[in-house]
Design a protein around this nucleic acid. Structure first.
Length: 725
DNA sequence: TCCATTGACGTTTTT
DNA sequence: CGTCAATGGA
């Protein structure tokens, strides 16, 4: 068979990776170096050249999107069905294993996945029931604690320092929470991974089966693996499996949620004879952008080391705009985008990248004002919307009445006279007898615990659920979905909301029915023996869907730096480049390499740009209702000054005038200002005040001063007779 | 049960 | 400043 097409279009390092024989491979793939391509060609190589059965390959990614892309591209390249290949996310694969081996894993067949919102609600419930002060013991923190522990592979009994009161309290909550989950057959995201790991640990026969079968492991985004994922890979590989990992330690930006960059280094230590290959040729950005990015990332210690280069052009210098404030920053960026579009380029070639989600607002305002279409990434996704989750909760309850999270959610939605008091009674009963809410409710009815009216209401609710289940068991998924919505009267609950809101909710419910109708169970779920309903519910939990329905017209792209990873755009704006915002204050203060992670984030952001990179910072930024005077980000100083070109506001424009500000190494020949922003001054008539702003130039410079007594005033500098204090 | 007001909080997010 | 959640009165 002619396999030249697998290597022909690759550079030398890429070929070496794709065709590596024997042993383990670590590919250090710089940004834009063709990482995905290498992974896919490797997959094809194993099958076509090494004649590995597709059944013997496991390819793992972090997101569903990446998994889907890999399957599709592999299919195109191989021209055969990719169905037997195991390609998926860590969570997806763990889920599949648990479905196939639910007994060995100690789970009920009808186990359900708990998403993070469900998890948090359940924890809030538990903390309340324990009679603890929610202000002191926030559910969010409990969630963080539990997930972090699970990510480290720890069960409550493994956690030491029980003498530490805070830790021991969280361990206590962890225990109770886990009991709830076990009783109701609920599995949170971290639990999927932990259980899958424990399955192998405790069931050598199962592990052995997969070790024999899955001889080739391909792992994408290896720098994002956490402790349990790493342990899982090691265990599956055993002494015979061959592991091919691709990653970039310089792009590790998820340390805060448990990812361990160290895994990249540990891989060389823990696996014998690792061949390390660096992909350093970049096919994305201009030389200038790469030089600046390289210079920046060189400030990090403990790197594996890499230097990106390109055979392409130097390109334009990076531009740096020192905005007067965040308004000016947004105005400037939107103006430049407008120019770009006017020059015949596309809006969706432009991306605005920021550190925190809150920063998007102003840009949206200005884009709206100019009528430029935009799209904000992130935000709530389809299967996370309230109404969708409500409807799904009913479906979950049909499938597994012991699902406490679902029960809590819909027992009184729409209101059916089951108030807080009644629900408390059920909870109490559940707690005392170690039952699920559903079981406890039944017991309460039998024992006549409720007042007559409440008892009737609870009974009616349970009859409703049972009734639906019995009547609809052989309906199609779409009809079941519609039936559940109709019979639960869920829509009456939303009709009390403002009409606009109601309409969206109903629309989303219709879309949910459509989704159920159109749902085709993935082959691998069928293989794992799932029912269609099980498959659909897992799909909803594991793949929360897109933020919005496809609205892919030519839009300016806006997103946080984190969500930009893996993407590329001709024109990139990196905004809010101020110390305190980026790098974020919290990261600067905290020890433990947080600053280095911020720097990697900047590196990720810069390397998104293909042609043109534009950095912006504001000298004054309003945050939390306060004006802050900002220093430009230290990251700007870490780039070579000769690659950066200061953009100055055009002279005479009615734009606030900027005083000089040291920007390490940059030639900043701005006209010297008599006062600095934030300087305390005194005026013969108005008294003491603070300089807020300047405007105009030469003799026309006006100054904005906030006086302690007289308030804020604009004064012509030449006449104002201000004195510095 | 519902709306309105008040208060606390403020980094990043996928599964 | 702006958001979201919780509380409390009608």
């Amino acid at each position: 068979m002619d396999v030249s097409h697998l290597l022909d279009e690759l550079n030398e390092a890429q070929r070496e990776a794709v065709s590596a024989e024997n042993g383990h491979v670590l590919v250090l793939a710089g940004a834009g170096s063709g990482k995905t391509r290498v992974l896919i060609h490797r997959l094809a190589w194993l099958i076509q050249v090494n004649h590995v059965s597709p059944l013997g390959i496991l390819a793992v990614t972090f997101t569903n999107k990446a998994a889907g892309e890999m399957r599709e591209r592999a299919g195109n390249l191989l021209q055969v069905s990719t169905r037997p290949l195991w390609i998926g996310t860590f969570h997806g694969i763990a889920h599949r294993l648990l479905r196939m081996h639910f007994k060995e894993a100690g789970l009920p067949e009808a186990f359900q996945i708990l998403d993070s919102e469900d998890q948090q609600r359940l924890l809030r419930r538990i903390i309340r029931d324990e009679g603890m002060d929610e202000a002191h013991w926030p559910a969010r923190q409990a969630q963080w604690f539990i997930n972090a522990r699970k990510d480290e592979g720890e069960r409550p009994e493994h956690i030491e320092h029980l003498d530490h009161p805070v830790t021991s309290t969280w361990v206590h909550i962890y225990k109770i929470y886990q009991d709830y989950c076990n009783r109701g057959g609920l599995v949170d995201f971290a639990e999927l991974l932990l259980r899958a790991h424990e399955l192998w640990l405790e069931q050598p026969a199962v592990l052995d089966h997969y070790r024999k079968r899955l001889q080739h492991l391909l792992i994408d985004e290896f720098q994002d693996t956490n402790a349990i994922q790493y342990a899982w890979i090691r265990m599956l590989a055993g002494n015979t499996g061959r592991v091919f990992v691709v990653g970039d330690d310089d792009q590790s930006i998820y340390g805060w949620r448990g990812a361990k960059v160290e895994n990249v280094q540990h891989f060389q230590r823990d696996f014998p004879d690792v061949r390390t290959i660096r992909l350093e040729q970049n096919y994305r950005s201009t030389g200038t952008i790469l030089d600046a990015a390289n210079a920046l990332i060189r400030h990090n210690t403990s790197r594996m080391g890499k230097n990106l280069w390109t055979a392409g052009e130097k390109g334009q210098p990076i531009s740096l705009y020192a905005a007067f404030n965040e308004q000016d920053e947004a105005r400037y960026v939107v103006d430049r985008i407008e120019q770009w579009i006017d020059s015949g380029r596309r809006a969706d070639d432009c991306a605005i990248l920021y550190r925190t989600t809150a920063q998007s607002r102003l840009f949206e305002e200005y884009l709206l004002r100019k009528n430029i279409p935009y799209r904000v990434y992130g935000g709530q996704r389809f299967f996370e919307r309230t109404e969708v989750k409500d409807a799904l909760a009913y479906l979950r309850l049909l499938h597994n009445p012991n699902d406490d999270a679902a029960m809590e959610r819909v027992i009184n939605k729409p209101t059916r006279a089951i108030g807080q008091k009644t629900v408390s009674l059920i909870r109490l009963q559940a707690r005392e007898s170690g039952l699920t809410l559903w079981q406890a409710a039944r017991e309460c009815i039998e024992q006549g615990v409720f007042a007559t009216r409440a008892g009737t209401a609870v009974k009616a609710f349970m009859d409703l659920v049972v009734g639906i289940r019995e009547r609809m068991s052989d309906w199609t998924l779409g009809n079941q979905m519609q039936g559940v919505i109709d019979e639960s009267q869920l829509t009456t609950h939303y009709e009390k909301e403002p009409p606009e809101r109601t309409e969206t909710r109903l629309e989303n419910l219709r879309e949910l029915v459509n989704a159920a109708d159109a749902f085709a169970m993935p082959a691998e779920d069928a293989d794992a023996g799932l029912t269609e309903l099980q498959s659909f519910l897992s799909h909803a939990a594991l793949e929360a869907g897109d933020t919005q329905a496809e609205n892919w017209e030519d839009c300016v792209q806006m997103m946080t730096l984190h969500s930009a990873k893996g993407l590329e755009f001709p024109l990139v704006f990196l905004v809010g480049m101020e110390d305190g915002l980026f790098p974020h204050q919290r990261s600067v203060e905290e020890a433990g390499g947080r600053l280095e992670e911020e720097r990697r984030l900047a590196y990720v952001g810069m390397t998104r740009a293909r042609e043109m990179l534009c950095l912006c910072y504001a000298e004054v930024r309003r945050m939390h209702g306060q004006e802050n005077y900002c220093r430009p980000s230290r990251f700007i100083d870490e780039m070579p000054a000769e690659l950066i070109e200061e953009v100055r506001p055009s002279i005479g424009a009615s734009r606030p005038y900027r005083p000089a500000r040291p920007t390490g190494g940059l030639s900043m020949e701005s006209p010297s200002a008599p006062f600095k922003l934030g300087q305390h001054v005194i005026h013969p008539k108005f008294g003491e005040g603070t300089v807020l702003a300047f405007e105009g130039s030469g003799d026309n410079v006006r100054v904005h001063v906030n006086f302690l007594d007289a308030g804020a005033k604009w004064l012509v500098l030449a006449y104002a007779n201000l004195q510095a204090l």
